[in-house]
Structures are given as C-alpha cells and as structure tokens.
C-alpha cells in the first residue's frame, strides 16, 4: 500500500490539468512547407486577384502574351488608340477637325494624297503658317506631335487616318516613316504650307 502511494504523487480525485508541452518540430516544419508550397502555387496560378485574369489564364503577363499583336487588324487598333490619345483632342476622334483649332482629316487632300511623303512629314516636323485644306485656309500652327512616337506606332496612326472616315487609302509603313525621319534630320523646324507643296507627294 505504501509503495503505490509513492507512484501516484497527486491524490486520485484531483482535477487533471494540461501541462505546457512544445509542438513537435515536424508539425511545425510541415506547416511551413505547406504554406510555402501554397504561396508558390498561388503565385503561379492565382493571377494576383487581377479582375481581368480568369482561369485558365494564370497571370496578367500570360494573358497579355495571348493578345493579338500582329496583323493589319491589330495595327489598326493600335493606330486608333494612339490617334485618340495624341491627335483626337484637336482633330476630333471623328477626324472632322475643329474650327480655329485644327483642320479636318476626313476627306482632306493631304491625307488622301497618292504618296505618303507629305503626310508623313507633318507629324514629324510640325506645321506653321497658312495651309489650304478642302478649299479653306487655316492659319494655325501644329507641334511635331509624332516626333516622339516610334516608327511603327506613327505608321499605325497614319495608316488609321488614311483608312478611316471614308478616306479609304492604303497603309503607311514603318519604312516610310523611317525614310522621312532620315530626310528631316536632327532638329526639324515646323514647315509651312508652301514648303510642303514643294515636296513631292
């Protein structure tokens, strides 16, 4: 009887209490590994909560790479976007121009010319002085709005202008823009209407 009492130090009718014991290290490590794998999976497949990214696409970059980037339709879409951003404020997104601000592009003989050399020079050098458009004189100045655009983008804008609003003319290529840039040289001055008329179409 005495021996048994020594083995059980607390009285048998006492409330059992929880003791502080440490979490086994393997559970801790496993949790960390699972959290890490989950984070990696989310990074690869979650799209980072982007409202434009739906499954099965896993990221905005992947979706971006699937957008059509080549072809005439894509170039026109790009040209329209750039036109509305750079030119539309003055010339109007409908290409009809605005009185005392900018002449129309729709139906303009400068746009519908057979060659594209004059048209390509306008956004690269800018304009100053009198210019006749569709039988009306415009005495305004235009900055070299297109000089900062890359060749392909400026070509896309000009192609959009030439093909829209019933103009129905052929495209302007990046090579046309490149050639015009080379002809103009480093520090272009705004050209006048007479200077423009001296240049071949």
């Amino acid at each position: 009887m005495n021996d048994e009492k020594k083995i059980c130090p607390t009285p048998p009718d006492a409330e059992p209490t929880a003791t502080r014991s440490t979490v086994p290290m393997w559970i801790f490590s496993l949790t960390l590994v699972l959290v890490y794998l989950g984070a990696v999976y989310f990074d690869h497949h979650g799209g980072w909560f982007d409202a434009k990214v739906y499954g099965p696409y896993s990221s905005a970059d992947e979706l971006d790479s699937y957008q059509p980037k080549s072809g005439a339709a894509a170039a026109l879409a790009r040209g329209k976007q750039l036109f509305e951003m750079n030119c539309g404020i003055c010339h109007g997104v409908d290409g009809l121009g605005k009185p005392n601000i900018a002449p129309p592009l729709a139906g303009s003989e400068w746009v519908k010319a057979k060659g594209v050399q004059r048209l390509t020079h306008i956004p690269l050098t800018g304009l100053t002085g009198t210019l006749r458009v569709e039988g009306q004189s415009w005495n305004l100045s235009m900055a070299a709005m297109g000089a900062a655009l890359p060749d392909t983008d400026l070509a896309a804008v000009l192609t959009y202008i030439r093909s829209s609003w019933g103009n129905g003319m052929g495209p302007v290529t990046a090579d046309d823009v490149k050639a015009a840039r080379a002809a103009i040289g480093g520090h272009p001055q705004p050209m006048s209407g007479e200077q423009m008329m001296k240049m071949p179409e």
Binding site: F49, Q67, G71, A73, A74, L76, A77
Partner: peptide, 19 residues
C-alpha cells in the same frame, strides 16, 4: 466589398481588334 471594388464600376469594354 472586394468584388464590388473590383467589378462594381465595370463598363462596356472594347471588342478585340475592333472599335
């Protein structure tokens, strides 16, 4: 809240390669 902030102001979008 999160869906409303993300999509609550959704508008018409452009069709690809089209105006």
């Amino acid at each position: 809240l999160a869906p409303v902030l993300q999509l609550g102001t959704a508008k018409q979008t452009a069709i690809l390669n089209s105006s």
